[in-house]
Each structure stands twice: as structure tokens, then as C-alpha cells.
Design a protein around this nucleic acid. Structure first.
Length: 112
DNA sequence: ACGCTGACGTAAC
DNA sequence: AGTTACGCCAGCG
């Protein structure tokens, strides 16, 4: 197949779209699911480009610590936390409190 | 055309 | 246990 714009981005978008409401995942988890855990940075970068797609719930993607690393990239830094709280996710100081409870790992939920 | 930066993560010191 | 360095790949100056 002609992998043009790096199926990586497309793959990331697909996984992020599959994140259920009230759940979050980490860049590394997605990268790990894609088999490129070292490219976790690229996952985050894909999120940046996700803005071009417009259908990617990037607010459901946080870093390994459950911190809203990319909140600064949203329309407003407060937007990401608001969206998460809107889904029932507790966020304090840009960090997800019940991170382990709302953590959604594609490698586990989508594992084959 | 070339190089730095960047929504991360892990290893090493 | 905290900090520094590196790897990854693509977008942008």
C-alpha cells in the first residue's frame, strides 16, 4: 500500500477516536499499541496535527503521568480540563486525579 | 536544502 | 530519588 502521510498519524487518530467517553489514554500507550513506544513523541505531534482533522478528542490524551501536557495547545488552556471534567474525569492542577481509574489502554481494550 | 524544535518516555548518571 | 541525555519522526524556519 502506498503509505503516504505516515500511517502512523492516521493510526493514532483512529485510536484516539476510539477512546470511550470518560476515559483517557497516554501518548506512550498509543505508541505502544502501534508498536512504536519509542515514538511516543510522534504521537503527541500527531495530536498537534489532529487539530487539522477536527474530529480528534485530543483532550482525552495525556502524558504518562496523567498530566494535561498539551492543554496549552487547545483553544484555551482551561478548555482541556473542562472537557475532561465534563466527562466525569477529576482534574486537579492540570493533573488527572483518578488517572488509573479512567485510564484506557488500547493495548488492553483493543488487544487481539 | 538543512537543522531545530516539539502534546513523550525510558535509561543512565 | 532527582536530573540529564537520548531516541523517535515529522513539520516548519
Amino acid at each position: 500500500m502506498d503509505a503516504k502521510h505516515t500511517d502512523f498519524f492516521k493510526d493514532v487518530f483512529d485510536v484516539v477516536r476510539l477512546i470511550p467517553k470518560g476515559r483517557v489514554t497516554s501518548y506512550g500507550a498509543i505508541a505502544n499499541y502501534l508498536g512504536t513506544k519509542k515514538s511516543s513523541r510522534i504521537v503527541g505531534y500527531a495530536m498537534n496535527k489532529a487539530h487539522t482533522d477536527g474530529t480528534i478528542p485530543a483532550h482525552r490524551v495525556v502524558n504518562r503521568k496523567g498530566v494535561l501536557s498539551g492543554k496549552n495547545h487547545f483553544a484555551t488552556p482551561n478548555r482541556m480540563q473542562e472537557l475532561l471534567e465534563n466527562e466525569g474525569i477529576l482534574v486537579k492542577d492540570n493533573s488527572i486525579q483518578n488517572f488509573e481509574q479512567v485510564f484506557w489502554d488500547p493495548s488492553i481494550e483493543l488487544k487481539l
